[in-house]
């Protein structure tokens, strides 16, 4: 199969998921509202206190990870619920499905962060000292979240209690991202440090590459019976 048709089929899966999502807005609404309400809960319970960069970075990452967990399992669970996974298996190879779902999840997370992070900055009155480094840390974190989340979502969709297992399975795998992402974000929020924490950026990038590649190789065993 030519690479052009491979890409076009992968994009078709992405477009299908995006269209289905726009019709129901199930994941988008759930994730956005979840992120907003937990954001409000955090800023209200702080009650005007001014936490330092290390606290703020930790809050932001906990919010991001749990918001992603509210939405990521949908990508495969809805295929099982509507019993459309059989059709998808006939029309595309496992690698295409994995890449298409990964792209959709990445788009979903980025969209959610695009809404929640500015509100976080406004509500908690934070100014990123190094805005470029701040965006880099969050963006690479989203990459890692989407990579690990896609494969775990595929696993969870095949189990009995779909969804409720997702956080238990994904969180231990995501701990490296949470830890490094928090450190990188903290550096970008504190004045007087170097602009970009290159060590952390490298770790986030290599995590995303390792987990995406591992997922690509392992996905076939999850997807096919």
């Amino acid at each position: 199969m030519s690479s052009a048709s491979w890409i076009s089929r992968t994009l078709a899966i992405l477009a299908k998921d995006a269209r289905a999502e726009l019709r129901t807005r199930y994941a988008l609404n759930a994730v956005l509202l979840f992120a907003l309400s937990s954001l409000v809960a955090v800023s209200m319970s702080l009650a005007g206190a001014r936490p330092g960069p290390d606290m703020l970075a930790a809050f932001l990452w906990i919010l991001m990870v749990f918001a992603a967990m509210a939405g990521l399992p949908r990508s495969f669970v809805h295929e099982e619920e509507r019993q459309t996974s059989g059709w998808l298996k006939l029309s595309a190879s496992p690698a295409m499905v994995y890449c298409g779902k990964f792209a959709f999840n990445l788009l979903l997370i980025l969209l959610v962060e695009l809404v929640t992070v500015p509100i976080f900055l406004v509500l908690l009155n934070v100014t990123p000292v190094h805005p470029a480094a701040f965006c880099l840390a969050i963006g690479l974190g989203c990459l890692g979240l989407a990579a690990a989340g896609t494969l775990v979502a595929a696993i969870v969709a095949r189990t009995q209690n779909r969804g409720s297992l997702f956080a238990a399975l994904a969180l231990p795998l995501l701990l490296p991202v949470i830890v490094t992402g928090t450190i990188a974000t903290r550096e970008s929020l504190s004045p007087g440090t170097g602009a970009v924490a290159w060590g952390e950026v490298r770790v986030l990038l290599s995590y995303a590459v390792v987990v995406f590649t591992g997922g690509l190789l392992l996905f076939e065993f999850v997807w096919n019976d």
Partner: peptide, 14 residues
């Protein structure tokens, strides 16, 4: 067997 093997290998990547 298959799904838990996939998860175990993914965990080993950590």
């Amino acid at each position: 067997a298959r799904l838990s093997a996939v998860y175990a290998i993914l965990a080993f990547l950590m």
